[in-house]
Amino acid sequence: EGEAHRVLFGFVPETKEELQVMPGNIVFVLKKGNDNWATVMFNGQKGLVPCNYLEPVELR
């Protein structure tokens, strides 16, 4: 579910809505907001990550 994206930079959450991710993680974007935040799914957890920390990736 969602579009696959690769994480470019590590992100440490500052609020409980945000999700910690590391460079190279593959996350699935469920929704992109107008505020430059994306709702993503990673390892069964859902949370917010900055859009500019993500790049689309083709999964084969």
Rank of each mutant, 00 (worst) to 15 (best):
1 E>L: 10
1 E>H: 08
1 E>M: 12
1 E>S: 10
1 E>R: 11
1 E>D: 08
2 G>H: 06
2 G>Y: 07
2 G>M: 11
2 G>Q: 05
2 G>N: 04
3 E>L: 10
4 A>T: 07
4 A>M: 11
4 A>I: 07
4 A>G: 06
5 H>L: 02
5 H>M: 06
5 H>C: 04
5 H>Y: 09
5 H>R: 02
5 H>K: 00
6 R>C: 05
6 R>I: 09
6 R>Y: 08
6 R>S: 04
6 R>Q: 09
6 R>M: 08
7 V>D: 00
7 V>S: 01
7 V>W: 00
7 V>Y: 00
7 V>H: 00
7 V>T: 03
7 V>L: 02
8 L>N: 05
8 L>M: 10
8 L>G: 04
8 L>Q: 06
9 F>S: 14
9 F>H: 14
9 F>T: 15
9 F>V: 14
9 F>Y: 14
10 G>I: 04
10 G>Y: 09
10 G>R: 14
12 V>A: 11
12 V>L: 11
12 V>I: 14
12 V>Q: 14
13 P>N: 02
14 E>R: 14
14 E>A: 12
14 E>Y: 08
14 E>M: 10
14 E>D: 10
15 T>L: 09
15 T>Q: 05
15 T>G: 11
15 T>R: 14
15 T>A: 10
15 T>D: 12
15 T>I: 07
16 K>M: 09
17 E>A: 13
17 E>P: 08
17 E>R: 10
17 E>I: 07
17 E>F: 09
19 L>P: 06
19 L>C: 04
20 Q>N: 09
20 Q>V: 07
20 Q>R: 14
20 Q>W: 06
20 Q>S: 12
20 Q>F: 10
20 Q>M: 11
21 V>S: 01
21 V>T: 01
22 M>W: 12
22 M>N: 13
22 M>K: 14
22 M>D: 12
23 P>M: 02
23 P>H: 06
23 P>S: 04
23 P>K: 11
23 P>E: 09
24 G>W: 01
24 G>S: 00
24 G>H: 04
24 G>D: 06
24 G>Q: 02
24 G>T: 06
25 N>F: 01
25 N>W: 03
25 N>M: 09
25 N>D: 15
26 I>M: 05
26 I>W: 01
27 V>A: 01
27 V>Y: 01
27 V>C: 07
27 V>E: 05
28 F>L: 11
28 F>M: 14
28 F>Q: 15
30 L>E: 09
30 L>A: 06
30 L>P: 01
30 L>M: 12
30 L>T: 11
31 K>P: 05
31 K>L: 06
31 K>A: 13
31 K>T: 10
32 K>C: 06
32 K>Q: 08
32 K>H: 13
32 K>L: 05
33 G>F: 10
33 G>M: 13
33 G>R: 13
33 G>N: 13
33 G>Q: 14
34 N>C: 11
34 N>H: 15
34 N>S: 15
35 D>H: 07
35 D>V: 02
35 D>T: 07
35 D>A: 06
35 D>S: 09
36 N>S: 07
36 N>E: 09
36 N>T: 07
36 N>F: 05
36 N>D: 10
36 N>V: 00
37 W>M: 15
37 W>D: 06
37 W>N: 12
37 W>T: 10
37 W>R: 14
38 A>K: 02
38 A>C: 07
39 T>Q: 12
40 V>R: 02
40 V>P: 01
41 M>Q: 12
41 M>I: 11
41 M>T: 13
41 M>V: 14
42 F>L: 09
42 F>V: 05
42 F>M: 09
42 F>T: 04
42 F>E: 04
42 F>P: 02
42 F>W: 08
43 N>E: 14
43 N>P: 02
43 N>D: 09
43 N>I: 00
44 G>N: 12
45 Q>C: 07
45 Q>K: 12
45 Q>N: 11
46 K>W: 05
46 K>A: 08
46 K>H: 06
48 L>I: 15
48 L>G: 07
49 V>W: 05
49 V>I: 08
49 V>H: 00
49 V>T: 01
49 V>R: 01
50 P>A: 01
50 P>D: 04
51 C>G: 06
51 C>S: 08
51 C>V: 15
52 N>L: 06
52 N>G: 08
52 N>M: 11
52 N>T: 11
52 N>P: 08
53 Y>Q: 00
53 Y>H: 14
53 Y>A: 10
53 Y>L: 11
54 L>V: 04
54 L>E: 00
54 L>I: 06
54 L>Y: 00
54 L>G: 00
54 L>H: 00
55 E>W: 05
55 E>S: 06
55 E>A: 10
55 E>G: 05
56 P>H: 03
56 P>Y: 01
56 P>R: 11
56 P>N: 01
56 P>S: 08
56 P>V: 03
57 V>T: 08
57 V>K: 02
57 V>Y: 09
57 V>L: 13
57 V>H: 07
58 E>D: 13
58 E>H: 10
58 E>V: 11
60 R>D: 14
60 R>L: 12
60 R>M: 13
60 R>E: 15
